[in-house]
Amino acid sequence: MTRIEMTVDGARVSDDVEPRMLLVHYLREKLGKTGTLVGCDTSNCGACTVHLDGHSVKSCNVLAVQAAGHEVTTIEGLAQGGDLHPVQEAFHDCHALQCGYCTPGMIMQSVDLLNDNPHPTEEEVRLGLEGNLCRCTGYHNIVKAVLQAAGGASS
C-alpha cells in the first residue's frame, strides 16, 4: 500500500491505495465520485475524462499514485454553489445527450478545450473532442453545445 494525498473537487483527501489502482477507480470506489464513468478498457472512449492540475486526462490511464500531490477536478466539482457550469448549461439547452454515458467526459473535455481556445471554430471543436466517443448523438448537438457555451461559432 502507498499513502497518497491529493485535492479532489476542492477537498483534501488521503488514503492508502495499491499502486495498481487506477485514478478512475480511486475516484469512484474510494471517494464515491461515480459521476466519472468507465466506458472502455483501451483508453479510447474518454468517458473517464477529469482534469489533473487543470488539464484533461483519461483517468483510466493514470494511476492514483501518479495523481498524489496534485489537484483533480471531476464532473462533480464543476457546478459552483448550485449553479451549473456554462458548458453543463449548454449541454442541457442543446440536448447534447441521449443516454448520457459519454456526457461527463464530453463536458470535462469541452471545458478543457474552451480554457485553451475560448472561441473555437466548429472544426476545432470536433478535433478537440476526438478522444471522446459518443454512441448515440452523432456528435452534432454536442458540437452545437460547445459552440453555444463559447458564445456562438467563430468563423
Binding site: 475524462t49 489533473l52 484533461s56 486526462v57 483519461k58 490511464n61 493514470v62 473535455q109 478545450l113 478522444g131
Partner: peptide
C-alpha cells in the same frame, strides 16, 4: 498524435 487527453500525459 492521439487526442488532447493523451497529449496531456
Amino acid at each position: 498524435l492521439a487526442d488532447p487527453q493523451v497529449r496531456h500525459r
